[in-house]
Write a protein that binds this DNA or RNA. Sequence first.
DNA 1: CTTATCTCCGTAGTCGACTACGGAGTCAAG
DNA 2: CTTGACTCCGTAGTCGACTACGGAGATAAG
Lengths: 142, 142
Amino acid sequence: MSGSQNTSMTIGSLAKAAEINVETIRYYQRLGLMTEPEKPLGGIRRYDEDALARLRFIRRARWLGFSLEEIGELLKLEDGTHCDEAKALGERKLGNVRDKIRSLQQIEGVLDQLVEECCTQKDNVTCPLIASLHEGFEAVTP
Amino acid sequence: MSGSQNTSMTIGSLAKAAEINVETIRYYQRLGLMTEPEKPLGGIRRYDEDALARLRFIRRARWLGFSLEEIGELLKLEDGTHCDEAKALGERKLGNVRDKIRSLQQIEGVLDQLVEECCTQKDNVTCPLIASLHEGFEAVTP
DNA sequence: CTTATCTCCGTAGTCGACTACGGAGTCAAG
DNA sequence: CTTGACTCCGTAGTCGACTACGGAGATAAG
């Protein structure tokens, strides 16, 4: 919705915009995560905002520990897969994502407490990180 | 705090308990993520619950997309690093974790909506995944 | 028209994180 | 005291995810 003029980039400017190596984009194309746009008669391919959004999504998802294969599945959800199939997949992925959130929140809690208490306590040499981990850490999936 | 009898395992049973390959444990030891316990005079090393908790933590953190190097830093927080140093590190890591949580929550929201709406809408062929991504996805770090 | 800077595409190399191998030593059960 | 399963330890191989290379063609600026 917001104003964008530069629909249509070369792979180079796309790479710069997404902060991803050109070679990596080409690698993703080979894997089928990105589609190669048509090449105009021995010319140079052009990319649009969708390609950019997709790349950013991939980058973010990688950062969150999803494999390229899993990311492929996530992306299939927005490409016209058959609906019920997509729904099932989406639900699985959603569970996955929620597990990760829960795990991260546990780590967050522990870290937060750690930072709080860190310099307050003097006698307890071992910080309470692992101790806390013992308790709350059997619940979630990995 | 809870009752545990089997303090003292061999590397094999430790591996089984943590659901991690023996070789992987040895690899972590080489990297310094796990310490090798003393070997009793040409005998066999023994591991305790702490080692197990540590391994589980590593596994979980890996699953959440942290590199072994980052995990090393997280673990340093509970080994007696100097406090202010640890605190700074902890705060950085905390920010990191919170970014991940936020990212995952965005994905969660999008996936959730997707699953909801998936079979309801008929005319809109492209599911709203990427569309939503466009909007909310500039905020967080990766 | 030239020159610099891309793009294209295939192939090869790197890096992090494992995973396997193999031979010598250890231990527990029978 | 043997046998089978396991440990120890060094080295080597694999796999996923990039990253680099190099030569031929395209395009834009001067």
